[in-house]
Nucleic acid binder design. Structure first.
Lengths: 225, 225
DNA sequence: TGGGTTTTGCAAGCTAGCGGACAAATAGCT
DNA sequence: AGCTATTTGTCCGCTAGCTTGCAAAACCCA
C-alpha cells in the first residue's frame, strides 16, 4: 500500500511516463519518501549518499552557504520539479540545504546509482533526462545573460512575468500569483539588494503595474511585462 | 580514406571511447568536416538543421547577438570541446555565430537527430553525455555565482587561474598561457568593461603578479591566484 | 492579547565600475 | 615601407545600486 503510493508519486511525473510498470516498481523499491512543514530545513548532499529528489507537493528554496557564511538562493523548486545531483556527479564542495516555503511538502528521492542503472536500461528515459538537464542549463544561461545586460528593474519585471506564467492564475490579462516569497527572497533571485527590490516593487505598485502584499501578487496586465 | 580521417577525429574524443567500431562508422557517414582560418565567422543554428559540433583543432569564440545588436561572448571553445545544441533541443530564438581565434581550426559536426539515435542505441554513451552536459551546467552556475558575489578583480584572477589550469604550460609555479584573446574578449568573459579589464591587467602587471602581452600571459606564481 | 520576531519602508552617503573621448602602440596588408 | 585597422592605455564624470541605520508594520504563537 505504501509502495503503491510511492509508485503513483513517481508515475505521474512526465519524465517517467515512458517507463514500464516493472521499471517504476524497481525504482520504487529504493525510493525514499518524506514530508515536512513550513520553515523546516532539509539537508542533503555532502554527508549523505548522492540522491535525486522529486518534489511532489509544495515549494522549497535551495540555499547555498559559501566559505564566508553568506547565504544565497540557488533555486526555487516547485511541485513536479527534480532537484539534487542533476548532473549525476556528486560534488562534495557545495554546501547546500533546502528550506520549506509552503505549508507542507512531500518529497521522494532515489539513489543516484540506482537512477543511473535505470537510465542505462531505458535509453528513452536517458534521452528525455538529458533534454531535461539541457533545459535547466538553458534557464541558467538565460539568467546569466539577464544579469549581464539588464538592470535591476528589468530583471524584476522578467522574473515576475516568468513566475506568473509558471504559477499564476489568469483572468483575462490580470494574473494572480500566490506569494510565498519574502522581498528578500525576490531580491536574491534577481540578484539585487533587499532595499532595491523593495523600492522597485513599491514603484511598480504606485505605477499601477502590480498590487503587492504578503499573500499574493497581482500583475494588473501581463502584457505590460 | 577521407571517411577514415573523420573516424579518427571522432574516435579519440573521450566521450566516444565507449562506442564500437561500427557505431562510429555509422556516425561518420553523416559527419560533416570543415576547416577555417583565423578571423573567419562560422554561422550555425537558426537557418541550418540543428547540429552538434566537435572542435578538433584550434580555438573559437561563440558570440551571441541580442535584439539590440549588442554582441556578447557566450563561450570560448577549445580543442576537443563539443558545442552547438548541447541540450538536444533546437532553440531558434538564439542568434549566435562562431569566430575563429587561432590560426586555423578543424570542426566536425553531425546532425542532432542522428546523434539522438546513437544515444538511444548506446545507453552508456547517453549516460556519459548527460554527465558532460551536467558538467557544463555546473560551470555556468559557477560563473553566475562569481558574478553575483565577486568583484571584477577577483573574477579576473579566477579566470586567469582557470585558463592557466586548462591550457597553461607550467614550469614550477610559473605558468605560461598562449594568449589568443584581446583585452576586450577577456573583459566580456569576466563581465566587465574593456577599460576596467585593461586597468586591472596593468595593475596585476605592476604588482608583479603577471607579465602580459598580446602573445602570451605569464602567471608568475599560480599559488597567488 | 501581548510580546517577540520577521518583514517591509525609507533616507542618505558612498563607490565600483560603466562609458565617452582620445592618443599611443601594435598588427596586418599590399 | 607605408597605410589602415585594431588593440591598448589613460583620464574622468556619472550613476545604479549597495550599505548602514532606523522605524513602522505585519506576523506568530503562547
Amino acid at each position: 500500500m505504501y509502495d503503491d503510493l510511492k509508485y503513483w508519486y513517481l508515475r505521474d511525473h512526465k519524465l517517467f511516463k515512458t517507463l514500464s510498470f516493472g521499471d517504476i516498481k524497481q525504482l520504487c523499491i529504493i525510493t525514499g519518501f518524506k514530508k515536512a512543514k513550513k520553515g523546516e530545513i532539509i539537508y542533503f548532499s555532502a554527508s549523505d549518499v548522492p540522491r535525486i529528489f522529486l518534489l511532489k507537493k509544495g515549494n522549497i528554496k535551495i540555499v547555498a552557504v559559501d566559505e564566508d557564511g553568506n547565504e544565497s538562493i540557488k533555486d526555487i523548486i516547485q511541485k513536479g520539479d527534480l532537484f539534487g545531483e542533476l548532473g549525476l556527479e556528486s560534488d562534495n564542495e557545495s554546501n547546500e540545504y533546502a528550506k520549506v516555503l509552503s505549508d507542507d511538502v512531500a518529497i521522494c528521492s532515489f539513489l543516484l546509482s540506482d537512477f543511473e542503472d535505470l537510465l542505462l536500461r531505458n535509453p528513452n528515459l536517458a534521452l528525455s533526462y538529458t533534454k531535461f538537464v539541457g533545459l535547466k542549463m538553458k534557464r541558467i544561461k538565460n539568467s546569466y545573460s539577464n544579469l549581464i545586460s539588464k538592470d535591476a528593474k528589468t530583471r524584476l519585471s522578467l522574473f515576475l512575468k516568468d513566475w506568473a506564467e509558471r504559477e499564476g492564475v489568469a483572468s483575462g490579462s490580470t494574473i494572480v500569483i500566490e506569494n510565498y516569497l519574502t522581498q528578500n527572497d525576490i531580491a536574491q533571485i534577481i540578484c539585487t539588494s533587499r532595499q532595491t527590490a523593495t523600492q522597485l516593487l513599491n514603484e511598480m505598485e504606485s505605477n499601477g503595474l502590480i498590487s503587492y502584499n504578503r499573500k499574493e501578487i497581482i500583475l494588473k496586465d501581463i502584457y505590460k511585462f
